[in-house]
Design a protein around this nucleic acid. Structure first.
Lengths: 236, 236
DNA sequence: GATCGCGCATGACGGCGGTCATACGGCCCG
DNA sequence: CGGGCCGTATGACCGCCGTCATGCGCGATC
């Protein structure tokens, strides 16, 4: 029973906020049901249309959820460590409405649908957690939808990085640092434009020192200047 | 106790799918908690940012949920009789993320938050209904988000009316009839464009007989032709 | 009936950004 | 080491559509 895998699972469950407050006996049962999955960068966790049989929790790494459109793909949301992915589809046993792809080497916890439902039914904290997840996703989607429409590409990209700075930024002497790798292609899909347009904006800001692209991170020297850039287009 | 209002409430609850399968004693309790509200066309049920204290169920009429953007408003969704509005916000006691406005004279049922939560907790059908509502909204939003982005205005408008035809269309000898009044302004907000662009598309289709605007309804003589119009732009 | 307001319609203009083409550096792999 | 692939970068073109302006028809209000 103390295989390397089981041992690791035990540690993981103890570290995840979602599980660590669970009463020990219940957590023991979860250990018997869940499985760990290592994924390389770019792996497809599932494809739009697949049936949802497992709840996925991100232990480490990042996962993007992409919706295919005829004119190109759109990244709906980026999820990071500690968050769950695809909860809506799993709960209703509905085909996934979008595709999930890892953006880095990631460690994932997968919990069979039925066991998760049990958990929800017996632990009020779990169902509350799911509702919270749902509302967050919902408001994020509505905000994105509203931002998408009239606003210019510059403004949308600026908004993207400002929200990233808020969610995972770290203050340094040089400015706000966003420790994340994001290809121009992904930036484009996040704000709903083409690669070329994304590149144009990013390289211009690189020249002007507004937003610097480093090897493994982005740096915003002056957040207010970037915010100004976003607002210029707003007042249309 | 049998005031006109109470009498009417009794009838309404018996007719609403959401309540009519409730065990009679429970339904009796609901009658004591809920209130009816008549709203004229254009009334604001609530504004984005308001705290959500009541669940709203549409008895008759239609309600649009609008998100304000600096460049103009976006209609996120249109709800019709039998559907609930704002469930997410009410459940989590979170400020409404968007504004709700009636599109016609409407009759609304309002249920205090706490009573609704009680209902959910004691009637499994209710919680299941809410989850369904949530997923529907979620998938609708993601679809809209994907459609919004590259596609041309023509295609988006065509998509709008095709989905309307599916949701509330009736077949007649003249084609598919959509019994709904929708101003050009509202069409524009639904597909995320300006009034002028919406007008241009609509009047062109009127001339060409693709989509006819009547006094109180729209008519699609040939659904396939409209679908073709939507696809022309797709293959970008 | 005169006036106002609102929704609908149409034209002119200009710019943002999508499309196409080309180029360059880094990395993997034979 | 040379070749192919991918991500990044930059320029040219042009078309969709957002913006502004103007006009018309209809219902409402006095």
């Amino acid at each position: 029973m103390t295989s390397p895998h089981a041992e690791r699972l035990h540690q993981v469950l103890a570290s995840l906020p979602l599980f660590k407050d669970l009463p020990p006996p219940m957590r023991g049962r979860v250990e018997g049901m869940a499985t760990l999955l290592e994924a390389a960068k770019g792996d497809e966790l599932w494809h739009a249309g697949d049936t949802a049989e497992h709840l996925t929790v991100i232990v480490s790494g990042r996962v993007k959820v992409v919706r295919h459109a005829d004119t190109g793909d759109v990244i709906l949301e980026i999820f990071t460590a500690g968050e769950t992915v695809g909860a809506v589809a799993v709960y209703n046993r509905v085909p996934y409405p979008a595709t999930a792809i890892t953006m880095e080497p990631s460690l994932l916890l997968r919990l069979p649908r039925r066991d998760w439902l049990d958990l929800i039914e017996h632990d009020p904290g779990f169902s509350r957690g799911m509702m919270l997840e749902l509302t967050r996703l919902n408001t994020a989607l509505t905000r994105k939808l509203a931002a998408m429409h009239g606003t210019r590409v510059d403004a949308r990209v600026a908004g993207l990085f400002l929200s990233l700075a808020e969610r995972m930024g770290r203050e340094t002497p040089d400015g706000t640092e966003i420790p994340i790798v994001l290809s121009r292609q992904e930036i484009a899909e996040l704000v709903g434009t083409t690669v070329e347009s994304a590149i144009r904006v990013m390289s211009r800001w690189n020249r002007e020192g507004l937003l610097i692209t480093a090897r493994d991170r982005f740096v915003i020297p002056d957040r207010d200047k970037l915010k100004a850039e976003a607002n210029v287009a707003d007042e249309g």
